[in-house]
Computed example of a mutant assay.
Amino acid sequence: MLLLVGMSVMSWAMIIQRNKALNIAVEETKQFEDKFWSGIDLSKLYNEVSAKVTVNGVEALFKAGFKEFARLHKNSRQSGAVMEGTQRAMRVGLSREVERLEMHLPFLATVGSISPYIGLFGTVWGIMNSFIALGAVQQATLAMVAPGIAEALIATAIGLFAAIPAVIAYNKFSHKVEMLESAYANFVEEFANILHRQAMANGENN
């Protein structure tokens, strides 16, 4: 029971933390995309993003892509090589951001899957002990086994109490992570197209 209570407390702490982090990620993505598509100069936007102490989400993808593009474009005029390196940098950034979003989700999945079985094990163990004790007396009554069985069933209840919120939260957060991952991937493709057009235009001018 103590194990289940501990798992429940930890899962609730992670649920609160993940819910806050994912909500912030959704809001930051919306705000940045609104600014990005407002027509702001990309160099100015890059300077604004670089000035921040912590850069996450779609801002991190933009920073990684623009930084690599500027570095490669300065040293090479071949648009294909420039874009290949730029896209590679953004793909690495995308992988890191998705990994950050999925933090603690495996723990919630584990709690949701094993808590009922731990509770059931506790129930079986408690009922088994009650019947063993019952076999040691000559006259058996319901009053003698009822407390032990009731206590054993509490383990199942605690297991479900730990598992149900974890499963609900895991499904909800997984869906939100998928939505953010899709938004990040779309931004990477759209930003790569913009940079590719810019690289081609600069190549023609030179």
Rank of each mutant, 00 (worst) to 15 (best):
R18K: 07
F161T: 05
M90L: 02
V92P: 09
N206P: 13
S182Q: 15
L3N: 09
W37Y: 12
N202R: 15
L180I: 04
M10H: 07
K52L: 06
N206R: 15
V92W: 05
V167C: 12
A140R: 14
L22T: 05
Q87T: 14
G85V: 01
A81H: 08
I127L: 06
T29G: 08
K74Y: 13
L3I: 10
M128I: 08
S79W: 12
A166P: 09
L101D: 00
E181K: 15
S11R: 10
G119V: 07
D41C: 10
F69E: 02
D41W: 05
Y117K: 01
T110L: 14
W12H: 07
E28M: 14
S115H: 03
V145F: 09
M144E: 11
W37L: 03
E27L: 14
S113Y: 09
I16R: 13
Y184A: 06
G159P: 07
T110N: 13
E33C: 08
E59H: 02
T156S: 12
Q198C: 06
L61F: 00
D34P: 09
Q139L: 15
S113T: 15
V55K: 01
A81F: 07
N23R: 06
G65W: 00
A199N: 00
K74E: 14
A155I: 06
G39Y: 04
I164V: 07
V145M: 08
R100K: 12
M179D: 15
E204N: 11
K74F: 14
A199F: 03
G119R: 03
R197I: 08
W125V: 13
D41E: 15
F69W: 10
T86N: 03
A169V: 09
L160T: 05
A183S: 14
M128V: 09
I168S: 11
L4H: 05
L101S: 00
N23Y: 06
V92L: 13
K30C: 10
A21R: 05
L2D: 13
T141K: 07
V49N: 05
L94D: 01
F107Y: 14
S50V: 11
G122C: 01
M83C: 03
N47F: 11
L72Y: 03
M144Y: 04
R18F: 06
E28F: 03
H196Q: 15
